[in-house]
Simulated assay, not measured.
Amino acid sequence: MGSSSVRAGRVGLAVLLLGTGAVACSKGASEESPKMTPAAAVAKAAKNVEDITSLSYRMTGKMPEEGRVKAEAKMRLKPDVAMSMKITALDKGADGTAEIRLVDKALFIGGGAAAAKEMDGKSWIKFDMAALGAAGESLGAAGQADKNPAQESTFLTGSKDVKEVGTETVDGVKTTHYKGTVSLDQFRDSLKSQSKVTREQREKSLEQYEKLGIDKFTMDMWIGADERTKQFRMRGAADKGPLDLTITFDDFNKPVNIAAPAAKDVADLAEMMKGAQAG
Protein backbone atom coordinates (compact mmCIF):
# COMPACT_ATOMS: atom_id res chain seq x y z
CA MET A 1 0.00 0.00 0.00
CA GLY A 2 2.99 2.26 0.30
CA SER A 3 3.19 2.55 -3.46
CA SER A 4 -0.51 3.36 -3.68
CA SER A 5 0.04 6.21 -1.21
CA VAL A 6 2.71 7.64 -3.50
CA ARG A 7 0.42 7.44 -6.49
CA ALA A 8 -2.53 8.76 -4.51
CA GLY A 9 -0.43 11.73 -3.50
CA ARG A 10 -0.31 12.70 -7.14
CA VAL A 11 -4.06 12.52 -7.52
CA GLY A 12 -4.71 15.68 -5.51
CA LEU A 13 -2.35 17.69 -7.73
CA ALA A 14 -3.45 16.18 -11.00
CA VAL A 15 -7.19 16.17 -10.45
CA LEU A 16 -7.19 19.63 -8.91
CA LEU A 17 -5.87 20.87 -12.18
CA LEU A 18 -8.91 19.49 -13.86
CA GLY A 19 -10.82 22.11 -11.99
CA THR A 20 -8.47 24.69 -13.33
CA GLY A 21 -9.23 24.12 -16.93
CA ALA A 22 -11.47 27.13 -18.24
CA VAL A 23 -13.20 28.39 -21.38
CA ALA A 24 -15.57 31.16 -22.40
CA CYS A 25 -17.01 32.86 -25.44
CA SER A 26 -17.36 36.43 -26.63
CA LYS A 27 -16.69 38.62 -29.66
CA GLY A 28 -13.37 40.33 -30.12
CA ALA A 29 -13.29 44.06 -29.43
CA SER A 30 -13.05 44.89 -33.11
CA GLU A 31 -16.43 43.16 -33.75
CA GLU A 32 -18.29 44.21 -30.63
CA SER A 33 -21.14 46.65 -30.71
CA PRO A 34 -20.15 50.03 -29.21
CA LYS A 35 -22.73 49.29 -26.52
CA MET A 36 -21.05 46.00 -25.57
CA THR A 37 -19.42 46.66 -22.20
CA PRO A 38 -16.66 44.42 -20.78
CA ALA A 39 -19.15 43.04 -18.26
CA ALA A 40 -21.60 42.21 -21.05
CA ALA A 41 -18.88 40.51 -23.10
CA VAL A 42 -17.88 38.36 -20.12
CA ALA A 43 -21.53 37.49 -19.43
CA LYS A 44 -21.97 36.36 -23.01
CA ALA A 45 -18.81 34.30 -22.69
CA ALA A 46 -20.21 32.53 -19.65
CA LYS A 47 -23.46 31.77 -21.45
CA ASN A 48 -21.67 30.12 -24.36
CA VAL A 49 -19.83 27.74 -22.03
CA GLU A 50 -23.03 25.70 -21.94
CA ASP A 51 -22.57 24.71 -25.61
CA ILE A 52 -19.17 23.08 -25.17
CA THR A 53 -19.08 19.30 -25.62
CA SER A 54 -15.30 18.76 -25.58
CA LEU A 55 -12.05 20.71 -25.28
CA SER A 56 -8.27 20.41 -25.19
CA TYR A 57 -5.88 22.76 -23.42
CA ARG A 58 -2.42 23.41 -22.01
CA MET A 59 -1.71 24.63 -18.50
CA THR A 60 1.30 26.29 -16.86
CA GLY A 61 1.81 28.05 -13.57
CA LYS A 62 2.12 27.46 -9.84
CA MET A 63 0.08 25.35 -7.43
CA PRO A 64 -0.02 25.61 -3.61
CA GLU A 65 2.62 23.25 -2.14
CA GLU A 66 3.40 21.66 -5.51
CA GLY A 67 5.18 24.66 -7.02
CA ARG A 68 5.63 24.98 -10.78
CA VAL A 69 3.46 22.74 -12.95
CA LYS A 70 2.65 22.14 -16.59
CA ALA A 71 0.06 19.90 -18.19
CA GLU A 72 -1.72 18.99 -21.38
CA ALA A 73 -5.27 17.69 -21.29
CA LYS A 74 -8.30 16.82 -23.35
CA MET A 75 -11.82 16.20 -22.10
CA ARG A 76 -15.14 15.00 -23.45
CA LEU A 77 -18.25 16.30 -21.69
CA LYS A 78 -21.01 14.72 -23.80
CA PRO A 79 -22.50 12.17 -24.17
CA ASP A 80 -20.44 10.96 -21.20
CA VAL A 81 -17.47 12.41 -19.32
CA ALA A 82 -13.96 11.22 -20.16
CA MET A 83 -10.60 12.88 -19.63
CA SER A 84 -6.90 12.42 -20.28
CA MET A 85 -4.13 14.57 -18.79
CA LYS A 86 -0.35 14.45 -18.69
CA ILE A 87 1.03 16.56 -15.85
CA THR A 88 4.45 17.44 -14.50
CA ALA A 89 5.27 19.09 -11.18
CA LEU A 90 8.52 20.70 -12.31
CA ASP A 91 9.90 21.08 -8.77
CA LYS A 92 9.30 17.42 -7.80
CA GLY A 93 11.96 15.74 -9.90
CA ALA A 94 11.40 12.20 -11.22
CA ASP A 95 8.34 11.68 -9.01
CA GLY A 96 6.63 14.76 -10.40
CA THR A 97 5.30 13.29 -13.65
CA ALA A 98 2.02 11.43 -13.94
CA GLU A 99 -0.76 10.68 -16.38
CA ILE A 100 -4.47 10.64 -15.56
CA ARG A 101 -7.38 9.10 -17.42
CA LEU A 102 -11.02 9.20 -16.43
CA VAL A 103 -13.02 6.54 -18.28
CA ASP A 104 -16.43 5.05 -17.37
CA LYS A 105 -16.35 6.71 -13.92
CA ALA A 106 -13.00 5.11 -13.08
CA LEU A 107 -9.90 7.20 -12.45
CA PHE A 108 -6.57 5.80 -13.62
CA ILE A 109 -3.28 7.25 -12.37
CA GLY A 110 -0.20 6.23 -14.35
CA GLY A 111 3.36 6.60 -13.13
CA GLY A 112 5.21 4.89 -15.99
CA ALA A 113 8.26 2.71 -15.45
CA ALA A 114 8.88 4.06 -11.96
CA ALA A 115 5.44 2.94 -10.83
CA ALA A 116 5.84 -0.44 -12.50
CA LYS A 117 8.93 -1.16 -10.38
CA GLU A 118 6.92 -0.58 -7.21
CA MET A 119 3.76 -2.46 -8.22
CA ASP A 120 4.84 -5.80 -9.68
CA GLY A 121 4.97 -4.49 -13.21
CA LYS A 122 1.72 -2.52 -13.00
CA SER A 123 2.20 1.08 -14.13
CA TRP A 124 -1.37 2.29 -13.42
CA ILE A 125 -3.60 2.41 -10.34
CA LYS A 126 -7.37 2.31 -10.78
CA PHE A 127 -9.70 4.20 -8.45
CA ASP A 128 -13.40 3.36 -8.71
CA MET A 129 -14.85 6.73 -7.76
CA ALA A 130 -18.32 5.38 -6.96
CA ALA A 131 -16.96 2.63 -4.70
CA LEU A 132 -14.59 4.98 -2.91
CA GLY A 133 -17.44 7.14 -1.63
CA ALA A 134 -16.41 9.24 1.35
CA ALA A 135 -12.97 7.64 1.30
CA GLY A 136 -12.32 9.65 -1.85
CA GLU A 137 -11.54 12.64 0.37
CA SER A 138 -8.17 11.02 1.08
CA LEU A 139 -7.34 11.53 -2.59
CA GLY A 140 -7.46 15.28 -2.29
CA ALA A 141 -9.63 16.80 -5.01
CA ALA A 142 -10.28 13.51 -6.80
CA GLY A 143 -13.99 14.19 -6.62
CA GLN A 144 -13.49 17.02 -9.14
CA ALA A 145 -12.30 14.65 -11.88
CA ASP A 146 -15.66 14.52 -13.62
CA LYS A 147 -16.41 18.24 -13.37
CA ASN A 148 -16.54 20.47 -16.44
CA PRO A 149 -13.31 22.53 -16.38
CA ALA A 150 -14.97 25.19 -18.52
CA GLN A 151 -16.89 26.50 -15.55
CA GLU A 152 -13.97 28.36 -13.94
CA SER A 153 -13.96 30.92 -16.72
CA THR A 154 -17.42 32.03 -15.68
CA PHE A 155 -16.10 33.32 -12.34
CA LEU A 156 -15.42 36.69 -13.93
CA THR A 157 -19.16 37.28 -14.33
CA GLY A 158 -19.22 38.12 -10.63
CA SER A 159 -16.61 40.87 -10.94
CA LYS A 160 -17.57 44.47 -10.22
CA ASP A 161 -14.46 45.92 -11.86
CA VAL A 162 -13.98 43.94 -15.09
CA LYS A 163 -12.37 46.03 -17.82
CA GLU A 164 -10.96 45.71 -21.32
CA VAL A 165 -7.16 45.86 -21.34
CA GLY A 166 -6.62 45.88 -25.11
CA THR A 167 -6.01 43.56 -28.06
CA GLU A 168 -3.23 40.96 -27.97
CA THR A 169 -2.14 38.03 -30.11
CA VAL A 170 -1.98 34.62 -28.44
CA ASP A 171 -0.62 31.66 -30.42
CA GLY A 172 -1.23 33.59 -33.61
CA VAL A 173 -4.83 34.40 -32.67
CA LYS A 174 -5.96 38.01 -32.26
CA THR A 175 -7.78 38.38 -28.95
CA THR A 176 -9.35 40.95 -26.67
CA HIS A 177 -7.91 40.94 -23.16
CA TYR A 178 -10.29 41.41 -20.21
CA LYS A 179 -9.29 41.66 -16.56
CA GLY A 180 -11.01 41.92 -13.18
CA THR A 181 -11.14 40.75 -9.58
CA VAL A 182 -13.86 38.62 -8.05
CA SER A 183 -14.53 36.98 -4.69
CA LEU A 184 -16.17 33.57 -4.48
CA ASP A 185 -19.08 35.19 -2.65
CA GLN A 186 -19.56 37.67 -5.50
CA PHE A 187 -19.55 34.87 -8.03
CA ARG A 188 -22.06 32.86 -6.03
CA ASP A 189 -24.34 35.90 -5.82
CA SER A 190 -24.15 36.30 -9.60
CA LEU A 191 -25.58 32.80 -10.06
CA LYS A 192 -28.99 33.68 -8.61
CA SER A 193 -30.32 34.63 -12.04
CA GLN A 194 -29.07 31.43 -13.71
CA SER A 195 -31.04 28.27 -14.37
CA LYS A 196 -30.91 25.52 -11.76
CA VAL A 197 -28.70 23.29 -13.90
CA THR A 198 -26.26 26.09 -14.73
CA ARG A 199 -26.20 27.27 -11.13
CA GLU A 200 -25.43 23.78 -9.80
CA GLN A 201 -22.65 23.23 -12.34
CA ARG A 202 -20.94 26.50 -11.49
CA GLU A 203 -21.33 26.15 -7.74
CA LYS A 204 -19.52 22.80 -7.93
CA SER A 205 -16.54 24.57 -9.46
CA LEU A 206 -16.25 26.70 -6.31
CA GLU A 207 -15.76 23.80 -3.94
CA GLN A 208 -12.12 23.00 -4.68
CA TYR A 209 -11.07 26.61 -4.22
CA GLU A 210 -12.95 26.97 -0.96
CA LYS A 211 -11.12 23.88 0.32
CA LEU A 212 -7.82 25.54 -0.64
CA GLY A 213 -8.75 28.60 1.38
CA ILE A 214 -8.97 30.93 -1.63
CA ASP A 215 -11.68 33.57 -1.33
CA LYS A 216 -10.73 36.01 -4.11
CA PHE A 217 -9.23 35.84 -7.60
CA THR A 218 -7.57 38.20 -10.02
CA MET A 219 -8.60 36.97 -13.45
CA ASP A 220 -7.57 37.60 -17.07
CA MET A 221 -9.34 36.36 -20.21
CA TRP A 222 -8.14 36.59 -23.80
CA ILE A 223 -11.15 36.12 -26.09
CA GLY A 224 -10.81 35.56 -29.83
CA ALA A 225 -13.04 36.62 -32.72
CA ASP A 226 -14.36 33.05 -32.89
CA GLU A 227 -16.24 33.84 -29.67
CA ARG A 228 -14.11 31.53 -27.56
CA THR A 229 -11.48 32.26 -24.96
CA LYS A 230 -8.05 31.49 -26.30
CA GLN A 231 -6.28 31.98 -22.97
CA PHE A 232 -7.27 32.37 -19.34
CA ARG A 233 -5.39 33.17 -16.13
CA MET A 234 -6.45 32.99 -12.49
CA ARG A 235 -4.47 34.07 -9.43
CA GLY A 236 -5.35 33.70 -5.77
CA ALA A 237 -3.85 33.29 -2.29
CA ALA A 238 -4.47 29.81 -0.82
CA ASP A 239 -3.82 28.66 2.73
CA LYS A 240 -0.66 26.84 1.66
CA GLY A 241 0.72 29.21 -0.95
CA PRO A 242 -0.15 31.10 -4.13
CA LEU A 243 -2.11 29.72 -7.04
CA ASP A 244 -1.29 31.20 -10.46
CA LEU A 245 -2.45 29.22 -13.47
CA THR A 246 -2.65 30.08 -17.15
CA ILE A 247 -4.76 27.93 -19.47
CA THR A 248 -4.31 28.08 -23.24
CA PHE A 249 -6.98 26.39 -25.33
CA ASP A 250 -6.29 24.50 -28.52
CA ASP A 251 -9.61 22.98 -29.65
CA PHE A 252 -13.31 22.94 -28.81
CA ASN A 253 -16.10 20.54 -29.76
CA LYS A 254 -13.90 18.16 -31.70
CA PRO A 255 -14.07 14.35 -31.29
CA VAL A 256 -12.24 13.13 -28.18
CA ASN A 257 -11.59 9.40 -27.78
CA ILE A 258 -10.07 8.17 -24.53
CA ALA A 259 -9.47 4.51 -23.65
CA ALA A 260 -8.69 2.91 -20.33
CA PRO A 261 -5.13 1.51 -19.94
CA ALA A 262 -4.61 -2.15 -20.81
CA ALA A 263 -5.88 -4.37 -17.99
CA LYS A 264 -2.51 -6.10 -17.66
CA ASP A 265 -0.93 -2.77 -16.71
CA VAL A 266 -3.51 -1.80 -14.06
CA ALA A 267 -3.53 -2.42 -10.32
CA ASP A 268 -7.07 -2.04 -8.95
CA LEU A 269 -7.08 -0.16 -5.64
CA ALA A 270 -10.22 -1.98 -4.45
CA GLU A 271 -8.54 -5.35 -4.98
CA MET A 272 -5.37 -4.13 -3.30
CA MET A 273 -7.36 -3.05 -0.27
CA LYS A 274 -9.15 -6.40 -0.09
CA GLY A 275 -5.82 -8.17 -0.25
CA ALA A 276 -4.43 -6.02 2.52
CA GLN A 277 -7.45 -6.71 4.73
CA ALA A 278 -7.22 -10.46 4.08
CA GLY A 279 -3.55 -10.33 4.99
Rank of each mutant, 00 (worst) to 15 (best):
V81L: 01
V81E: 02
A82C: 08
A82F: 06
M83D: 14
S84K: 06
S84G: 12
S84L: 11
K86H: 13
K86Q: 08
I87L: 14
T88K: 07
A89C: 14
L90C: 11
L90W: 03
L90D: 11
L90P: 02
L90M: 07
L90A: 11
K92I: 01
G93W: 03
D95I: 15
D95T: 15
T97L: 04
T97W: 01
T97F: 08
T97A: 08
A98C: 11
A98E: 08
E99N: 06
I100L: 13
I100P: 01
I100Q: 08
I100G: 00
I100M: 05
R101S: 05
R101D: 07
R101A: 11
L102K: 02
V103R: 02
K105T: 09
A106P: 00
A106F: 08
L107M: 03
F108P: 15
I109V: 13
I109M: 12
G110V: 12
G110F: 10
G110H: 08
G111E: 11
G111L: 06
G111Q: 04
G111I: 04
G112T: 14
G112Q: 03
G112D: 10
G112P: 11
G112I: 12
A114P: 04
A115S: 10
A115R: 06
A115D: 10
A116H: 08
E118K: 15
E118W: 13
M119G: 01
D120N: 14
G121L: 05
K122Q: 13
S123I: 00
W124I: 10
I125C: 00
I125Y: 03
K126Y: 12
D128F: 07
D128T: 07
M129W: 15
M129H: 03
A130W: 15
A130T: 12
L132R: 08
L132V: 05
A134S: 13
A134C: 01
A135P: 00
A135E: 15
E137I: 13
S138A: 06
S138R: 01
S138Y: 02
L139F: 11
L139K: 01
G140E: 06
A141D: 11
